[in-house]
Amino acid sequence: MWTFFHKLGSPKWFYEISGKWLPWLAVLSAILLVAGSVWALAFAPADYQQGNSFRIIYIHVPAAFLAQSCFIMMAISGAIGLIWKMKIADVFVKAAAPIGASFTFLALLTGAIWGKPTWGTWWIWDARLTSMLILLFLYFGVMALQSAIEDATTAAKASAILALVGMVNIPIIKYSVEWWNTLHQPATFTLTEKPAMPAEMWVPLLVMVIGYYCFFTTVLFLRARNEILERERRTNWVKKLVSKEAA
């Protein structure tokens, strides 16, 4: 198990293995996202109260899941980078931040679009919406640190600390709807109870969620590979790789 862990720390090894996985991941996410969207938009039944406007859930919920999962991943990578000084962990933190920010923005945007007809307002400063906005700013913070600090090791250290400190926001987002009175409704899906939604509605949602995770992994790998090539450009294996591509 530990050899696997240490192998994972090698940028070269990751570059090779991710290259093999990428096409599969890309195809899988394309299939899932297309199938999920068609199913969700054309075949899933409308909601009894909201009608068709509820369908935005198929974008909103997976985006919100991803926004939080991505931050957790970033914080764990940050901790690994701080403790074990693994180069690849730093690469992941840097590669993940803009993707996470995009998903957070997507969740906020779709929430606002849905909120206007359903609640009667685009935005309200309730605990869920505000903590989600803070998450977006945390992502921006990591991105700003990465571009403001020239030295990669220092930048990685600073953003890892921000990611770890920002982790405290994740349970706040999750439980905000239970701890406080909010306008945002509590979770429809929990691990312990059956969903407050019939199967013909949540199965396409599940497809979309898995599709989003595959898409996230694909984009993360692409960005991480790019970053690795840039950081390792002086090593032999990258030089060899580049000359082979050029030839």
């Binding site: 009667g120 307002t121 509605m201």
Partner: peptide, 10 residues
Amino acid sequence: LAKHDENYMP
């Protein structure tokens, strides 16, 4: 403002 609950139904 209307508060929507977590239940969805056809």
